[in-house]
């Protein structure tokens, strides 16, 4: 499946989930990497909003009222931007 490149986003607003501060609300922009399908199945879909609840080796995010624990490696594949 073709994926948009990270460069298509405005560079200043895109960051990975790892770079988000705890407690911030962000919107998922693009998933890019080998874990995409699994991320989408579990609820990390483009356009959805999430809040990062904890950081660390595995971080916890809240998406649509569900808490999901996600590893750093997978969080690196989730590109987000601040909620408009």
């Amino acid at each position: 499946m073709p994926h948009a490149n990270a460069a298509d986003l405005k560079i200043d607003s895109a960051m990975t989930l790892n770079q988000v501060k705890v407690g911030c609300d962000v919107q998922i922009r693009i998933l890019s990497g080998p874990g995409c399908d699994r991320l989408r199945d579990m609820g990390f879909c483009e356009e959805l909003q999430l809040r990062k609840l904890t950081s660390g080796r595995n971080m916890i995010c809240s998406i649509c009222g569900t808490r999901l624990a996600i590893s750093k490696e997978l969080a690196e594949q989730v590109l987000v931007s601040p909620v408009k």
Binding site: P34, G35, M42, I60, T66, L68, A69, I70, S71, L74
Partner: peptide, 8 residues
């Protein structure tokens, strides 16, 4: 690699 991803 199947990294950790779990619903709480």
């Amino acid at each position: 690699p199947g990294h950790f991803l779990l619903e709480l």
